[in-house]
Design a protein around this nucleic acid. Structure first.
Lengths: 339, 339
DNA sequence: GATGAGTTTGAAAAGCTTTTCAGAAAAGAT
DNA sequence: ATCTTTTCTGAAAAGCTTTTCAAACTCATC
């Protein structure tokens, strides 16, 4: 049986108020008593009950985090950043997996609400009207990580997807590539789809290159197998392309696998640039050149922002844009170049 | 301001006991009142406060999980299994990252204890006397996932590392390999070190092969860069080996990178077998043959086991061994074979 | 219409802590 | 030694729910 503050009070022969003060405002209690209390605490291995505390303070120092798929490297790195920020600020994270399932999400949100989380972070998933309704019922602030809501005024932290995609394409173009394909998420995917496609196309158009989506883009989920098939189709319909922009590192790895299997040399014959810069990017062969999202920072900053909102502090901007960058490794080279 | 049970009671014009009963034992309250209460609940968007509930029931339906490094794919898959089991049993997971830091671990355990978690899962890390002391102070059951404690009677779920390593080596031997190297964790690492090394050596000895650790094993952390260096050294001191057993997929990818960069063909010239079967194994080139640990299951079963302990139900065995298997992909072939 | 059994309800305690408020003790001033 | 201030301390309320217990009610039976 865990010791309670009563037990400590009894053992130290003081009132429970005094024990409480020793814990929360030690200077208020006279030294002799304080020491007796401290001894009693040690002897009973007492630790205060956070439930009771939370009940009074109306604060649990616990945040909820929803992921569509935690087993994805992308999210684990975001999570790592969140966990650090939470630890540094004395908060804990309850992690839930939504599986992209609206009913499951609803159930989770209900429980988290009951558990009195101080704030919630939603990761990657688009905010549909349904979500918005559920969020609105919540009694706590919400931050979106690696996604944002154009329609509702919800705080968010993410990169500028369109610009990042533009930069990826522009980078390839700068190296001299003129026939560039893309493996993309579905066009209606508000993160890895739409904006990245627009950025990609815009870059091609700005440089007067072939930019017909029918020809130079293939779509598929982020899953390796789907991306592999997408690469296969893309290569079939655009055989003379010299570079591929894969909207996600997992897609890039699938492209690389396809090229290897068809004995097409990377980057000599075809360059591949990825997106995300997950840890896998440095572990494949050739090492992947990719558009880096600061995944850890996105996680870290979402928690920081959420904490601000919880504390009623001002946040400078509702939608935080974090910088992306291109990490040059070995999967991209100028077209036709021997290495 | 969140509505409380009082507010509901007032609006429905009943006592709070009645509201509570509508929630917990609806049949006890007469229909007319029940409906009035339900309406009030809906109108006020009331949801019961889990802190107050937890205080009474002495149960929070919240479990703590400690990882040494969440951003590792290995752990994210274990985590996915845990999360499923937790969701199915109406529990939540508080995830913490220890960074292998004892002080941090101590701080985390203190907070989790205060938050009245019902149970704790420790992942991968060895249980040192210090840990044991901290665990003993906890008021809740503990399960070790992907690790175990030979010294203390703590429940655990993991594969038989030694046998798995033995099987990996035996598999290579069965294909005709006679000069086999290993990239290992440090010898004193109780998981990816010691047991796997012993299994590996035993397999070699059982078949009368070169098994001098000085010659055929290199050590290093699981980090890619360290493993790359280890592979480099191993290859230097054992240039005629035809197969490598990498104790972990990340190590295997490093080995593969090294071989690619030195234009050594895989598996024609050197076969590589990994360990873990993380998702990366299917995304590299060539696809990695590896000893599969059922990562998801390890996570899932640890939670199931923990729940048993929490409920005071019997567990059949303190140390659960889950089955491993060899997943054959493309990185291993018979020595000298053309593909 | 009274009695009894069974159902339904509300008051109050319990679960553990923090915080307010007022009283007690100590310290200081005269 | 007395009175004021200041410092400490304890009792009690509050935070929200569940649960026990006893009271009130319903309904059937005689």
């Amino acid at each position: 049986m865990k010791a309670t503050i009563r037990d400590v009070a009894k053992l130290a022969n003081v009132s429970i108020s005094t024990v409480s003060r020793v814990l929360n405002a030690p200077d208020m209690v006279v030294r002799s008593k304080r020491e007796r209390v401290l001894e009693a605490i040690a002897e009973l291995n007492y630790s205060p009950n956070a439930l009771a505390r939370g009940l009074i303070h109306r604060r649990t120092r616990t945040l909820g985090v929803l992921f569509p798929d935690i087993s994805n490297l992308f999210y684990s790195e975001v999570l790592a950043g969140m966990e650090s920020a939470a630890y540094e600020s004395d908060n804990n994270l309850i992690i839930c997996n939504t599986d992209n399932n609206i009913d499951r999400k609803r159930a989770i949100l209900k429980v988290l609400d009951e558990k009195q989380i101080d704030g919630l972070i939603l990761t990657s998933e688009p905010v549909l009207p349904d979500d918005q309704a559920m969020i609105a019922k919540l009694a706590c602030p919400v931050v979106l990580a690696a996604t944002h809501s154009p329609d509702y005024a919800i705080a968010s932290v993410k990169v500028d997807e369109e610009q990042a995609a533009y930069d990826a394409a522009a980078y390839l173009i700068g190296l001299g590539h003129v026939r560039i394909g893309m493996i993309s998420g579905l066009a209606d995917d508000p993160i890895s789809g739409g904006p990245r496609i627009r950025g990609f196309i815009r870059a091609l158009e700005d440089h007067g290159l072939q930019s017909d989506p029918e020809r130079c883009i293939e779509y598929g989920s982020y899953r390796f197998e789907h991306s592999y098939e997408a690469m296969k189709k893309l290569h079939a319909k655009y055989p003379d392309m010299t570079a591929v922009f894969a909207s996600g590192d997992e897609r890039a790895l699938a492209a690389i696998s396809y090229l290897h299997e068809n004995r097409i040399r990377i980057p000599e014959q075809v360059s591949v640039i990825g997106f995300d810069n997950t840890r896998m990017a440095g572990m494949c062969f050739p090492k992947l050149t990719t558009v880096a999202q600061p995944l850890y920072d996105i996680g870290y900053l979402s928690v920081v922002k959420l904490l601000r909102l919880i504390n009623g502090e001002p946040v400078d901007d509702l939608r935080t844009i974090v910088p992306h960058s291109i990490v040059e490794r070995d999967s991209v080279a100028a077209p036709g170049k021997r290495i």
